[in-house]
């Protein structure tokens, strides 16, 4: 089933063409790797899909519904979550509270809950969700540490954990492997493998082909805002 359908997407910044007629589709369960030189427009593509930037022209259909008009937070509700290229966390909070904030959408508000609090069962349900994500991302040892005190590799992993709180159907990861040691990359790969098994679709930007080959089943090569087709491919990777 088609999850995401990007049609003739264009984005210009004051005359600079960052994205030029980008089209592709993504099926349920796909893990799409995106490669391309610096400034190719990869992050811009993510910003457009997640609503952080508005397209100059073109359409984005998520589960057959157009989402161009929706704000970032509405798209998260629909099931599109993301991480950022530059590491972003709630740096003043602990690891666990970062993830709890990530589970924002699972928590319920409303006047009654605000004034009189939430039930024990609801509290427990949230805690279970947090625990599941902590286990999935292997951050158990750092639960109560401040996010800012983590090493860069763990911060990268915590970012994925925060994004998972929204229970996304599609997860967009902007260079999740960047700036890490080989061991760290390996561990991050384990996390992504685990995620892929749960059936979640992913798009990930990555410069190193090894990672793409190891974790993606499809590939998109970008250059100067365009999709280059056909794309170089090896092994199980199928260009789209």
């Amino acid at each position: 089933m088609t999850l995401l359908n990007v049609q003739q997407l264009c984005k210009t910044f004051d005359g600079l063409v960052a994205l030029d007629q980008v089209s592709f589709t993504l099926k349920q369960g796909d893990v799409l790797g995106i490669v391309g030189s610096n400034g190719a427009g990869k992050s811009t593509l993510f910003h457009l899909i997640t609503g952080y930037l508005n397209p100059t022209s073109g359409n984005i259909l998520f589960e057959q519904q157009p989402v161009e008009e929706l704000s970032p937070e509405q798209r998260v509700r629909d099931g599109i979550a993301r991480t950022f290229q530059k590491n972003r966390l709630f740096f003043g909070l602990t690891v666990e509270d970062n993830i709890r904030t990530g589970c924002f959408l699972s928590q319920r508000g409303g006047l009654k809950r605000t004034l009189f609090g939430i039930s024990r069962a609801e509290k427990q349900a949230i805690q279970n969700e947090v625990d599941t994500i902590v286990a999935l991302t292997g951050l158990d040892a750092f639960r109560h540490n401040g996010a800012a005190t983590l090493s860069y590799g763990y911060q990268r992993r915590l970012e994925v954990a925060v994004a998972l709180g929204a229970k996304p159907k599609l997860l967009l990861l902007d260079e999740p492997f960047s700036g890490q040691s080989p061991k760290s990359i390996e561990e991050m790969g384990q996390v992504l493998h685990g995620l892929a098994k749960t059936g979640i679709s992913m798009m990930l930007i990555e410069h190193r082909m090894e990672s793409i080959i190891a974790y993606c089943n499809r590939l998109l090569v970008m250059d100067q805002g365009r999709v280059l087709i056909p794309a170089p491919t090896t092994g199980g990777v199928v260009p789209c």
Partner: peptide, 13 residues
């Protein structure tokens, strides 16, 4: 307060 863009990315309006 911590990061407005990140807050949006977890669904905070």
């Amino acid at each position: 307060r911590e990061d407005e863009d990140l807050a949006k990315s977890v669904g905070v309006a």
